[in-house]
Design a protein around this nucleic acid. Structure first.
Lengths: 231, 231
DNA sequence: AACTCGATTTTGTATAGACATATTATTGTA
DNA sequence: TACAATAATATGTCTATACAAAATCGAGTT
């Protein structure tokens, strides 16, 4: 007897009812107790199935009010954010890394503001290039907060990218990702072998360790870059 | 006897241990039984905490082998994909919708291929504009598969955007999202009040209902658009 | 009509115990 | 030694039960 009532079975069956419009958007669906009886499972099992569907945005649940099918399935897409090197190697391409510059500087006002730092903070600015099969893949422009990661002062970033170095040495608790389209400036255009003003796909990330800003990075891709996800 | 041990407490404490490097990347952490004893909780509670951290990419778990701290925290970012109207209204801006064209056509080869359709399929192409505070916000270019959604033949899309109409009338089970940067073509530039070749942020989405393609949409934003998420 | 406050209902979560399943370690065998 | 069968073990999941917490409902009050 393999077929034990799994929360997956229940989840999928309920997802099917929503997809087939047997449960219409906005309507109240039966309570956990009722569903548990219907599926012949414990309430905890049904609860797990319902919670997964709620997390996926298909259902909206509120105590006392019950569970209803989401009117506007505000579904969320999940994107995997890997290391550049892994991303490139996963495509079967040869990864190369080139350090462009590394400076210890008082940061521009704009960077300080975005990181919420005081005037006396010192940062390291690292600019480098990631290549896939010898073609420019990503230009990385990074600021590292030395107050948060003093050991970065000793890192050369000659052969290991700041990306990987930070993963190894500076854990974070919070992060903010931004994606946008922009026009390549002269610098970026030259490095990515594009013409100035060409569209580029930019990802920005700020990471914190319990409130203290660690690093801000701007990752610039040629417009051929695509960020894809399913579900 | 107030503070009952919550899986959140346990999860956060374990996340802290990882962040503080008390549990180093790659190392094996204690088993559920041990942790349960340490935290004074049931194994199921610890299990839930561990599963959440694994789902977040901080831990890797395998039966019999145990749980270890992820070497490369391939974290995933979750982006909320709302309806344009909701997105605009959430900013406190006034939403407006303008239908540009609506044609029932044999689709271009490129669209047919992307949807995996045969030669005899008929699609509706809808082009429309979403405005925020009277400024162009998103240009939507959509293809709807009439074989999958025959009732779309009757929809006028004069006052309700295909976006909302489909949410109401055509459920889906699978979706694929793509984001990229591109240069505005003449058409897009005019509609979004940009100059030709200006960078635009493009989102594409294909949805299916159990294998059958429903719709393909290309959503074009001016480059001021940002897609942001935390965690 | 508006408002307060408690009763009620529904989901949320903890627990102990049991069994399932994947995977590794070990033992036995050719 | 190589390989197959088997045992051991950590995680995965289900159950039944209990209580917690949020939100609504409704009664009673102003």
């Amino acid at each position: 007897m393999s077929e034990r009532t799994s929360f997956r079975t229940i989840r999928d069956e309920m997802a099917r009812r929503i997809a087939e419009r047997r449960w219409l958007p906005g309507t109240l669906i039966p309570g956990e107790e009722t569903l548990a009886r219907e599926f012949g499972a414990a309430r905890a099992t049904v609860n797990r199935a319902l919670q997964e569907l709620a997390r996926a945005g298909l259902l909206e649940r509120r105590r006392r009010a019950g569970t209803r099918v989401a009117l506007h399935p505000v579904r969320e897409a999940r994107f995997v954010i890997p290391l550049v090197r892994q991303e490139i190697e996963a495509k079967g391409a040869v990864y190369q890394y080139r350090l462009l510059s590394r400076e210890e500087v008082g940061p521009p006002e704009i960077i300080r503001a975005r990181l919420g730092l005081g005037g006396r903070a010192t940062l390291i600015n690292v600019r480098c290039l990631h290549l896939a099969d010898r073609a420019p893949y990503q230009f990385e422009d990074r600021w590292i907060n030395l107050d948060a990661v003093p050991s970065a002062r000793e890192a050369e970033f000659e052969s290991m990218s700041p990306n990987e170095w930070l993963v190894k040495h500076a854990p974070f608790t919070d992060a903010e990702f931004t994606f946008l389209a922009a026009a390549a400036n002269a610098d970026e255009a030259a490095l990515l072998q594009l013409s100035e003003g060409a569209p580029v796909f930019v990802g920005e990330r700020i990471t914190w360790l319990r409130g203290q800003p660690i690093t801000l990075v701007r990752m610039v891709h040629p417009s051929s870059h695509r960020m894809v996800t399913s579900l």
